[in-house]
């Protein structure tokens, strides 16, 4: 499975990126608009939610817990500098998906104990999408974290994130992660729709 995280380029807006990902067959979308006010993001969120509904896709918003609750999105993704998972769970109750960013197994365990439903784990490698970055994990980092999750029976899905391209996917999936989060690499392709189709196919064919 692939989670697409919205992104923009000179050519495509945030909403364009989501539309292209959906047309390419992605059914798990995260609207991530850093550095914008809720007022600016709300209309985008409503439009993105509408598109996701039309495609039967799961719709997650980055960081904005109150907005997620207000518009009834499927869930929220919380980065390392966002609201803590436990606090978001208190606000949202049990009907919303909460994802948390983790860089280490300790982060994973903490998120799990606090009530997270999936983990975005990274970064795989250095990336230009994020300004503040934690140490990179590489394949060994994922193998180690997946193994420890098994040992402690932490059974929530974990998706790898951070500078991942098509060529990386088979090896990353072999580490036992559940899926991949993708952002910039799709929009940089000549045809983002075809690129998303190709990435989904690679993921589907490289499950462990």
């Amino acid at each position: 499975m692939i989670q697409f995280i919205s992104h923009y380029t000179e050519q495509y807006s945030y909403l364009d990126s989501i539309r292209l990902a959906l047309l390419g067959g992605c059914r798990w979308i995260q609207l991530r608009v850093k550095g914008a006010s809720d007022e600016d993001v709300l209309p985008m969120a409503l439009e993105a939610q509408k598109m996701c509904k039309e495609h039967g896709a799961t719709f997650i918003i980055d960081d904005r817990v109150d907005m997620v609750k207000a518009i009834g999105a499927d869930g929220v993704h919380l980065g390392k500098n966002d609201m803590p998972v436990a606090e978001a769970r208190r606000i949202l109750g049990k009907d919303f998906i909460i994802g948390g960013t983790a860089n280490t197994f300790e982060d994973v365990r903490k998120h799990y104990q606090d009530g997270a439903n999936y983990i975005g784990c990274g970064p795989f490698r250095f990336t230009t999408t994020k300004e503040k970055l934690s140490p990179i994990l590489g394949l060994e980092g994922y193998m180690d974290i997946v193994l420890k999750m098994k040992e402690e029976k932490i059974d929530i899905p974990i998706v790898a994130i951070g500078g991942i391209t098509a060529d990386d996917i088979p090896a990353i999936m072999q580490t036992g992660v559940t899926g991949i989060a993708i952002s910039g690499t799709v929009l940089r392709a000549e045809s983002p729709v075809d690129e998303m189709k190709r990435l989904l196919e690679i993921v589907n064919n490289s499950s462990k």
Binding site: M1, I2, C26, R27, W28, A57, T58, D74, I97, T178, G179, L200, V203, N204, S207
Partner: peptide
């Protein structure tokens, strides 16, 4: 959200 054989 549900995936079967890795596909949502």
């Amino acid at each position: 959200a549900v995936a079967v054989s890795n596909k949502m």
